[in-house]
Write a protein that binds this DNA or RNA. Sequence first.
DNA 1: TGATAATTTGTACATCTGTACAAAAGAAAA
DNA 2: TTTTCTTTTGTACAGATGTACAAATTATCA
Lengths: 237, 237
Amino acid sequence: MTRNPNMREAILSAAESLFSTRGFNAVSIRDIALEAGANPGSVTYHFKSKDGLLLEIYKRHCGPMNKRRIELLVAARRVRDVQDRLEAIVRAYVQPAFSSSSDLAGGGARFTRLRAVMSAEGNAVVGRIIAEIFDDTTNAFIEAIEQSLPHLPRKTLVWRSQFLLGALYYTLVNPERVTRLSRGEADGADMAEAIEQLVSATVASLQAPDINAQVAAEPVAKAGARKAPAGSRSRIP
Amino acid sequence: MTRNPNMREAILSAAESLFSTRGFNAVSIRDIALEAGANPGSVTYHFKSKDGLLLEIYKRHCGPMNKRRIELLVAARRVRDVQDRLEAIVRAYVQPAFSSSSDLAGGGARFTRLRAVMSAEGNAVVGRIIAEIFDDTTNAFIEAIEQSLPHLPRKTLVWRSQFLLGALYYTLVNPERVTRLSRGEADGADMAEAIEQLVSATVASLQAPDINAQVAAEPVAKAGARKAPAGSRSRIP
DNA sequence: TGATAATTTGTACATCTGTACAAAAGAAAA
DNA sequence: TTTTCTTTTGTACAGATGTACAAATTATCA
């Protein structure tokens, strides 16, 4: 090793940080080099191209993150109580996205934010990779949820998993909004609270009746009820 | 008016379309001009700069969209039944984001997608505007929800409104994911269904108990209480 | 009509972009 | 030490970018 024994890592970390906040196209190789204290030429030496650098970031994180997810999912599926199991499953999905088990600089939150930004930009390099690598894991989660909520069609669970991922992404992309709207009552950057809030909200949304579900016999007095009792109390048999 | 009586509109529409799919920095003025069938110089003539063009897009949509939202919110607040009212409130928030009332080319969905992308990129031009213009509307919604769910702290409602917006954004940013994961069972681009699914899931999540709520007395027979420990293990003092 | 204003066009320019590549510097092994 | 390999540096280049601006074109109106 030469001068900076971690130059490669420094570049990766700088790129991750800049990409995840400004997007891919807004960040130049020179920006990254400056942030990492490296020479621009050194970036192409280590990663061949800007795309190669982005790809390397994904390779670095995807494996550990999804591995951790599956580990937690396996444990979650063994939980007896349905309610607790559902919560454990959602937590298994959410938690590694906020802080990956591996101690890669910055943790999983930054990488998840990066994924959110790349997704929004419709990044071509990443498009295929994402679908291929993440869909397997996502499917495992949907199946697990399917087993805990067998009365719901898969279609509905997919929609709700979409909402979960969106909520997850946006929480990392724009945490200031939570702080602002709550007038300081909440801290949007508090990852621990974000996880708890997201898990509890998601568990409830997963348990909502299907939008096409027939309403079982219920003593309805009013005439209104245009959409059926869409809420959570209809959960009670 | 000159050759193309709608050249200004054509440029706006083209820019909106390109920005909302590729992001701000990935799209050049020349790209926009090409898409609009205009000369690059014409873009700077009408909008002064690239930033000015983006700003004009916001000016064009923000007003009508939030106006429609507030209209629907006012109506929603008059709904008697709590459950129905909550649903109407959420729908009042969601629906205009998918299709604005005004018939501006492309409807509200494209603009909402644009907002999602700009938010992810941390676009500086837009940052302030968003907070100033949208926070008022959002606060009106949070207050309305607060009145329907008085037992929940505002903080929790802010978190859940964050999740709603994230879910909304991501549904527009990456609809293909729904189609793919559902194996064709669902169409992620079906806006009508997206709205229904999002509304029903959100209403349920809003009604979830607060993560810090004490569990009221409930005849618990089993070891695992149904809803009680749903929050986190760390919650109990 | 002619005169004036509004729009479109084409060109130009300074700057930034990703990347290539040779030279320099350093580390490792003989 | 010398030799060999790895890494860093500096420079260069072709292309793209945002924007300015004068000329050409078209519309508006007296």
